[in-house]
């Protein structure tokens, strides 16, 4: 069964501690979260453990070919782009860097498709550069909800600033507000 909501969170420098703030006390959502964090490969598992320890949702490194599910957080592994096929199946592949990074937030966001009954949410957190800005514009075009982290709460405002400059960001929120907003909009998984 496809998830009812798909949240793509893109982050770079300063991202790990913001992700912890957002996931800490976040209930198990009635949706799937995919995290694209720019980082060296040796940190993949360490970040997964750290986020898993503070999250009520199950946190895993995304595997090629797996189908995403409600209540689970998927972290894109380093050095692979992550696309979502038909809004449900993870496709990982080694490709050229986009905006100097792999995985690229833009690649994942631009792989989403409008589909009746599925809500798409794109969130751009702290980080240097412009990855995510094109993807946010695409997401807006297919009816998704777009969010950028607020300037005062960012370690580095570059990526949210670029996303906001496209004119396609719906909400500018702090990490606490992002958590509250996700909980209210997506809702918790029924026990």
């Amino acid at each position: 069964m496809k998830p009812s909501s798909i949240v793509i969170i893109g982050s770079s420098g300063g991202g790990p501690r913001v992700l912890k703030e957002i996931l800490n006390d976040l209930p198990v959502l009635n949706g799937a979260i995919i995290i694209i964090q720019h980082m060296p490969q040796f940190l993949n598992e360490l970040i997964r453990e750290s986020l898993g320890a503070c999250s009520k949702m199950s946190v895993k490194i995304a595997q090629n070919g797996e189908q995403i599910k409600n209540g689970t957080i998927y972290i894109a592994p380093s050095e692979m782009h992550l696309e979502l096929i038909n809004n449900v199946q993870i496709h990982l592949y080694r490709g050229k860097k986009v905006h100097f990074v792999c995985p690229s937030i833009d690649v994942t966001l631009k792989s989403l498709k409008w589909e009746f009954g599925i809500r798409h949410i794109g969130i751009i957190l702290s980080g240097l550069g412009q990855d995510g800005a094109e993807g946010i514009s695409y997401l807006k075009k297919i009816g998704g909800v777009t969010i950028a982290q607020s300037e005062e709460s960012c370690a580095i405002y570059g990526m949210p600033k670029e996303a906001i400059a496209t004119g396609n960001v719906d909400l500018i929120l702090t990490p606490d507000e992002i958590r509250e907003w996700l909980t209210e909009l997506i809702g918790q998984t029924p026990n």
Binding site: S12, G13, P40, F42, L43, S78, F100, V101, L128
Partner: peptide, 30 residues
């Protein structure tokens, strides 16, 4: 880079985006 975590110490200004190609190696900015 393998096995070491790098955080940048920055002033008020935004770091120079011309070095964006190295950003995957920088986990945070203080």
């Amino acid at each position: 880079a393998e096995g070491n975590i790098i955080c940048m110490l920055t002033g008020k200004e935004e770091p120079d985006a011309k070095m964006e190609k190295l950003k995957e190696y920088v986990l945070d900015y203080i």
